[in-house]
Simulated scan of single mutants.
Amino acid sequence: MATTVALVDDHRLFREGLRALLATQSDLKVVAEASDAHEAFEVVRQTNPDVAVIDLLLPGVSGIQVARELMREDPKRRLMALSMVRDEQHVAQALDAGMIGYASKEQSMDEVVAAIRTVAQRQPYLAPGISRFVLDDYRRLRRGQSEGGSPLASLTHREREVFDLTVAGMATAEIARQLYISKRTVETHRARILRKLGAHSATDLVRFAARMGLLPP
């Protein structure tokens, strides 16, 4: 069964271009489109897509506010930001609102399609440039700040490394290569991290990081 997708973007030409591209993918199906927040609420509630792809700079009510309201209604929704802006503040706000993916309109269409597929699997996705500055921020925090009573203090050094790389959007195989360990070892560390933090998935870890204020304000 194809993954259903809703597109929320006020730029009609961009939206139509993305819809045409997704129409060529047998595993993806656009079931709804919207150009502003009002339409977004209506079509997402009506069609309940597997993934809603949302531009952050919508007219009137922002895409971040749309995401926050949609997640308040149903925390299981899978939302992905697709925007021209990619600064730390917007990324942090999007993740805090419940989005589990953040792609850039500067990426290739193939990369955007891959991002949608990743989010459809309830896995976090961050555009490559975004991944780098998020990871750098985590590393600065680990070097320069005391975590005190934070739940992260219960993680071992290796578990914290796996946590950092996971919330930066890296897949298991990438983490294994980065840390020179096996994929099975990465999965073992991640399972321990989830247990210690009371989380259930990599998506939960991204949201946890946002709630803990680890991302730039």
Score class of each variant (00 low, 15 high):
Leu214Gln: 09
Pro217Arg: 05
Arg68Trp: 04
Asp27Lys: 08
Phe163Met: 10
Leu79Asp: 10
Leu126Ser: 14
Tyr138Cys: 04
Ser131Phe: 05
Gly149Asp: 10
Asp87Phe: 03
Asp204Ala: 05
Val134Trp: 04
Asp164Glu: 13
Val53Gly: 07
Pro128Gln: 10
Arg190Cys: 02
Asp50Tyr: 01
Thr203Arg: 15
Arg177Lys: 14
Asp164Arg: 05
Leu141Gly: 01
Thr172Val: 13
Glu111Thr: 15
Asp27Leu: 06
Ala6Pro: 07
Leu126Gln: 14
Ala23Gly: 12
Ser35Arg: 14
Gly60Val: 10
Ala127Phe: 00
Leu82Arg: 13
Gly148Trp: 02
His157Asp: 11
Arg68Ser: 14
Phe133Tyr: 15
Arg117Ala: 13
Leu21Arg: 15
Ala199Thr: 11
Arg78Met: 08
Leu13Phe: 10
Arg68Tyr: 04
Arg117Pro: 07
Pro75Cys: 04
Ala120Val: 12
Glu42Tyr: 06
Arg86Gln: 14
Ile130Phe: 00
Arg177Leu: 08
Arg68Asp: 11
Ala37Arg: 09
His11Thr: 13
Lys29His: 13
Ala34Lys: 08
Phe41His: 13
Val91Phe: 06
Gly169Thr: 13
Glu159Arg: 00
Pro124Gly: 07
Glu187Arg: 14
Glu147Lys: 01
Lys183Gln: 13
Ala202Trp: 01
Ala114Asn: 14
Thr156Phe: 00
Leu126Ile: 13
Val44Glu: 00
Ala20Ile: 07
Ala97Thr: 05
Asp136Val: 07
Asp55Pro: 11
Asp27Pro: 03
Leu135His: 06
Ala202Ser: 14
Arg77Leu: 02
Thr4Pro: 06
Glu42Cys: 00
Arg211Pro: 04
Arg19Pro: 01
Arg86Val: 09
Gln25Pro: 01
Val51Ser: 08
Glu16Asp: 14
Tyr125Glu: 12
Leu155Pro: 05
Glu174Cys: 02
Val91Lys: 00
Met71Cys: 08
Leu79Ser: 08
Arg86Cys: 05
Leu13Val: 15
Leu155Glu: 00
Glu16Tyr: 02
Arg72Trp: 03
Arg86Ala: 15
Leu135Gly: 04
Ala81Asp: 12
Glu16Cys: 01
Ile181Ser: 04
Gln107Tyr: 00
Glu174Asp: 13
Gln93Pro: 02
Thr118Glu: 11
Tyr102Met: 03
Thr3Gly: 04
Gln65Tyr: 00
Ser83Leu: 02
Asp137Cys: 11
Val31Glu: 06
Asp136Thr: 11
Lys29Asp: 12
Gln93Arg: 15
Glu42Leu: 07
Val61Asn: 05
Val43Lys: 05
Gly148His: 10
Arg45Thr: 09
Met109Ala: 01
Val112Arg: 06
Met99Tyr: 05
Arg139Pro: 00
Glu147Thr: 07
Gly63Ser: 11
Met99Trp: 06
Phe41Gly: 01
Arg19Val: 09
Leu215Val: 06
Thr188His: 06
Arg143Val: 10
Asp87Arg: 07
Ala6His: 03
Phe133Pro: 08
Gly63Leu: 08
Leu56Asp: 07
